[in-house]
Amino acid sequence: MKRVFAFIAFFITMMSAALQPMNSFAENNSDSTNIPAESRLAITYLCGSDSVILTATLSIKKGDNTLALENAPIEFTASNGTICKLLGKAKTDQEGIAVVKVVSAGLPGDKDGMVAYVAKFAGTGKYPGAEASLNAKPAKIRLFFSIEDSLRILKVTATQKNEKGEEVAIPKETVLIYVPRLFSLLKIGEIALDETGTGTLEFPKEIVGDTLGNLVVVAKIEEHDKFGFVQGKNVINWGVHKQYYKAEVPSRELWTPIAPLWMIITLLVMLAGVWAHYMYAVYELVMIKRLSKKDKPLF
């Protein structure tokens, strides 16, 4: 089958957008230059367990500049050639990204179950319209955790629906296993599925979870000709407990807001010593002044 999917995973989109920081401008911005603008729209797709996420990235090429278009309405549709279903509308953000999430049940599919997704920017007076599309068949990945012979085992199954609507296995595919991190997904392993669409992985021990050791585990089929990006998720407390720092640092170090005690004590002792002597000297001066007043009547 020809390569019908022109997409990349959403996180890659996010990062590539970050790689080439684009200046965004609001759609209603006025600009006086007469260079013709070219609208570019890209669509990416991610199939979850019971829903589909579509992301469209809109940018405007003007001369040598590529800028993300903000606030532009994007229309998402799904079709099987005969039925065309409106999935939703979304406005682009500062990076020109619009996202919709739809329930996968009821998506119009052809006899193979393929759905054609279209993202459309109708265009405005200033910027021409643009369209992007991709085809994918919904699929499902499930994750199961078990302990066998004191080994932590992650089992993954991948299924698709046949013509009758029954779930059947997706055999012989590669599933990548990740844990989500602050900025990206950390890959922890790969599973090759057997004929029954099942595969297992001994779960690594040293993965850090949250402060209670909980881990989200993501299993993904990526860039598949037929299924595109498919993802399944589950949670398990097999992680190493994350170290938790309290926001307030009560310690007394050289670099903390509060000084070490010995430092304060030393300083106070020294200051008290010196100023006490000053006070004594001033006291003597005051006494000298007083003595002169006492003496005065004598003169």
Partner: peptide
């Protein structure tokens, strides 16, 4: 300060000066 050099004034002044001399050195 009405210093006239009475013995007591002198004594006080000398004492204060001695102390302050030690202080400024340290």
């Amino acid at each position: 300060l009405g210093y006239t050099g009475t013995p007591e004034q002198q004594q006080r002044l000398n004492r204060a000066t001695d102390i302050m001399a030690a202080m400024v050195i340290s």
